[in-house]
Amino acid sequence: MCEYGLMIFSVHVEVRLRPGIADPQGSTIERAMPTLGFSGVSGVRVGKSIRFEIDAADEAAARSEAEDLCNRFLTNPVIEDAIVELEPVGVAS
């Protein structure tokens, strides 16, 4: 380990359909709920959860890279957006 070593960040990306974009999966799940006896559930939206690790100098750099990855690959910005959560989990060797 050296003074300028990289840190490892654990990243969780939640990919969601943008507000206002119809969600056929969410609607179908919602419609199935009353048949199981869950009558008070509404607003069901289905997304994706993606986890990975990033080596970066600091949290800002890790976040910047994760958001770039979301914009260019993990989401389709026409219909989706993403929430990025990250935390340091160690020092890169």
Binding site: P24, T28, N76, V78, I79
Partner: peptide
Amino acid sequence: LTEAGLLPGALQKNAGL
């Protein structure tokens, strides 16, 4: 082609799944 940005818009899951 939409994912590649050569055409606008996106293709979503069919209504009614």
